[in-house]
């Protein structure tokens, strides 16, 4: 062995001497290289958004979807290994239909998140399995309590409930931008229409033209307007939001460069 402590990253069934499971950390790394996925809990619904890199000019834009409908009232956005994510989506669908079959009511958001996390976690326990290289953002509505919620399931098998969350390449700056929106305070909460614009702005802000690959924006929501069903955001509105976002970013840049000039004087 090259050095002390190495050799502990071969299996997720072994802890390293300082208490880490390297295979799970590597799985998280797989997500960090993928397109940014954002989720935002607004006053009247939840919005999901994924930056899907267009790897090939001949690709049909609507193929290889990152946002999937799980049940009438819930949807999942995935980023990382897309094929791993599809496996999670299938499982989430199974959990939903199983729950409704047994109990006669829709699965509560928290239970769906927890059950999906348990499934992901199982793959971090066995030497013969590989952890998921995917993060999943779950947006759902509970007709029983009339509450909507946003959760994120990570490769380690944890699930947290968020006001706003991000995964993928641009997650760090995206989180700072999401925090600036102050949606966790009731008095500064925004509606889904504003949320769509803000998420489009964050994605475009983080995207570096020329350096990053061209991408397609996938957006969906579970909100009052969609009758609390998981639906794709109308194409026209995404277009409108993107136009607004680009203009807003441009104006901000101009403002900043003006300020710089003033400083020089």
């Amino acid at each position: 062995m090259a050095s002390s402590g190495s050799g502990y990253d071969l299996s997720s069934s072994t802890f390293s001497p300082d208490g880490r499971i390297f295979q799970v950390e590597y799985a998280s790394k797989a997500v960090e290289n993928a397109g940014t996925a954002l989720g935002l809990k607004c006053s009247n619904g939840v919005v999901l958004c994924v930056e899907k890199p267009l790897l090939n000019k001949m690709l049909l834009p609507s193929s290889s979807r990152r946002i999937h409908t799980i049940d009438s009232h819930s949807g999942v956005a995935i980023t990382g290994f897309v094929s791993d994510g599809r496996q999670m989506v299938n499982r989430a669908r199974e959990e939903c239909s199983n729950y409704e079959e047994t109990y006669g009511t829709k699965i509560p958001s928290k239970v769906l998140g927890e059950r999906l996390a348990s499934y992901v976690h199982y793959f971090t326990l066995h030497g013969s399995l590989r952890p998921f290289g995917t993060s999943a953002l779950v947006a759902s509505y509970d007709p029983e309590t009339k509450q909507h919620s946003l959760q994120m399931v990570e490769p380690s098998g944890v699930a947290y409930t968020y006001y706003g969350c991000a995964a993928g390449k641009g997650r760090q700056p995206a989180r700072t931008e999401l925090e600036k929106l102050d949606v966790h305070k009731p008095e500064t909460s925004i509606d889904v229409r504003e949320g769509v614009k803000q998420l489009a702005r964050i994605i475009h802000l983080l995207h570096e033209e020329g350096k990053d690959k061209p991408f397609e924006l996938e957006m969906s929501w579970v909100c009052e307007e969609s009758n609390w069903e998981h639906k794709g955001v109308p194409r026209d509105y995404i277009k409108e939001a993107v136009e607004w976002a680009k203009k807003d970013i441009e104006e901000e840049e101009e403002f900043e460069s003006d300020e710089d000039e003033e400083m020089e004087d």
């Binding site: 109990y103 006669g104 009511t105 239970v111 927890e114």
Partner: peptide, 14 residues
């Protein structure tokens, strides 16, 4: 599991 009281509908369904 759910952290809330079950509904009568759920009891009837079971």
């Amino acid at each position: 599991e759910t952290g809330r009281a079950p509904t009568v509908k759920t009891a009837a369904h079971l």
